[in-house]
């Protein structure tokens, strides 16, 4: 039987503008958690905040039983999270959701990430090591960059953009992706980021018949597929249908998901 875990925080500090890296002691999640899965965190110290916050796994250390998450401070709940200290307790559920997967024989993969959506992608390159990754990362500016070195080490090639051009190329990462994609001819694209970015990635992938897995974010309730609040529109054989981001996703195929900028809040 699964339970919610009361875990000790090992460390928690800022790694970029409004971005924090938290290390949590939990052997179970460190062992069974897969890339793209998330943990569902109860915000401590404020009983008026009822909903848990779904945060993707950024990486794990299996040997020491440590789960890493990277999260952005966007509101009261994540502000409280950012103030937690080493030794504090955290109530988490997980690992939840269906993550990324690499079909057999696939070894040429493109990774596309934007902003806080870059965080879950790091677990991909940590988890599947014998893969040739070409990585496209878009950050807001120089101060928003985090974990770039990890991706550089793991990738054959890495393309970097910032909105203001303070590091890497200036502009959005999907423009660079569009320019380079045909010379790479990847077997698979894996992406996470704001909805406008995902829409571009979707269009690039679908237009070239490249399989593309994208990880979505949505306001969630239970996180275990019961309350039906975190819906996203999916194209199925029977027509359009709302699926559950928490338990059917959060990773979906780009040719099945209908991305709606009004419906979803991006990270």
């Amino acid at each position: 039987m699964e339970v919610s875990h009361i875990c000790k925080i090992i460390s928690n500090y800022s790694i970029a503008t409004d971005m924090y890296l938290m290390a949590i002691a939990n052997k179970y999640i460190a062992t069974v958690g897969r890339p793209g899965q998330f943990i569902h965190i109860k915000i401590p110290h404020d009983d008026s905040l009822l909903l848990r916050r779904p945060i993707s796994i950024n990486s794990v250390n299996k040997d020491d039983g440590i789960v890493y998450i990277v999260y952005q401070v966007v509101g009261t709940g994540t502000k409280i999270l950012s103030q937690l200290k080493e030794g504090d307790n955290l109530d988490i559920l997980g690992p939840l959701g269906n993550g990324f997967s690499i079909p057999k024989g696939v070894e040429n993969i493109v990774i596309v990430g934007g902003g806080c959506g870059i965080a879950p992608l790091k677990y991909i390159v940590d988890y599947w090591k014998d893969i040739s990754y070409t990585t496209f990362l878009g950050y807001r500016d120089m101060d928003s960059i985090y974990q770039l070195m990890n991706f550089e080490r793991a990738s054959e090639r890495l393309y970097l953009t910032t909105d203001d051009g303070s590091q890497g190329e200036k502009g959005v990462i999907t423009k660079v992706l569009e320019r380079e994609i045909d010379s790479i001819s990847p077997q698979l694209i894996m992406a996470c980021g704001p909805i406008p970015m995902l829409k571009e990635v979707q269009s690039i992938a679908n237009g070239r018949n490249i399989t593309c897995q994208i990880s979505l974010e949505e306001r969630m309730g239970c996180g275990i597929g019961a309350c039906m609040v975190c819906s996203c529109m999916i194209r199925t054989k029977g027509g359009l249908e709302y699926k559950k981001v928490c338990s059917d996703g959060p990773v979906f195929l780009s040719d099945e998901v209908i991305l709606d900028e009004n419906a979803q809040f991006s990270c």
């Binding site: 009983d47 306001r219 969630m220 609040v229 975190c230 359009l240 709302y242 419906a263 809040f265």
Partner: peptide, 23 residues
């Protein structure tokens, strides 16, 4: 029933607003 479009949930002080729409 397919239910209402997302977002379907909002957190308010000590409460939750939902608009699932009987999916």
């Amino acid at each position: 029933r397919s239910g209402n479009p997302p977002p379907r949930i909002a957190e308010t002080a000590s409460g939750i607003l939902n608009s699932v729409g009987l999916q």
